[in-house]
Design a protein around this nucleic acid. Sequence first.
DNA 1: ATATGAACCCTTGTAATACGATGTATGATA
DNA 2: TATCATACATCGTATTACAAGGGTTCATAT
Lengths: 109, 109
Amino acid sequence: MDKEMMKGNIDLILLSLIAERDLYGYEMTKKLKRLSDEAYSMSEGTLYPALKRMERKGWVTSYWSAPEGERRKKYYTMTKEGETELERKQKDWASIQSLLYKARRSYDT
Amino acid sequence: MDKEMMKGNIDLILLSLIAERDLYGYEMTKKLKRLSDEAYSMSEGTLYPALKRMERKGWVTSYWSAPEGERRKKYYTMTKEGETELERKQKDWASIQSLLYKARRSYDT
DNA sequence: ATATGAACCCTTGTAATACGATGTATGATA
DNA sequence: TATCATACATCGTATTACAAGGGTTCATAT
């Protein structure tokens, strides 16, 4: 997978995951790898700053889990603002897709 | 349109346009604006460096047009390498789309 | 004549980003 | 006890998109 193409799409991907259910960071990397059939590995140097950024923007919030005998995990959950932003990004994605479609058929225009 | 989301997609968009037929830079901005129903304006500060970059990578080549009585225009045309790269980027785009699709249905996984 | 604006090309500076490298700690397993 | 997977985090580097600015040419309006 072209890493340059992930630029700008990282947030959309993470928001899509978190919208389904609360996840912790490390779990996201594993899940993305599995969902992409091992094609894409999000580096932790990408993931954790991205989560911080999204929290700062108010799209997600986090909480620590502390069950007995388990390792601590920091879970992320969506906010209303995050849902709004996700919808916005989904629309943008669709717009770019439409633009690409038209570009491939624009010889005479 | 979210400008952060354009990152990494600029090259794909431009390659898609140039693959259809040779274009000059200024023409590309007008065409993109029209194809997007005025929603997206690619700034010239984005366009020209992008074209230079792609030429440096061997994806496109350029030539000046010099018809009588017309302004000079710098046209860009695809190379074999550019076609290969376009196909690669189209596959990457499809992969991300598939990943997004799966992410939205991954509650139990 | 000349002012204006559109068409056309380009560069520079800034902020944001993705990621490799690196660090730390804990729990399980060999 | 050594090692590996799990889990969180930061820093430095290269790359990027874009606003702002600069320049030329041509047509049209004043």
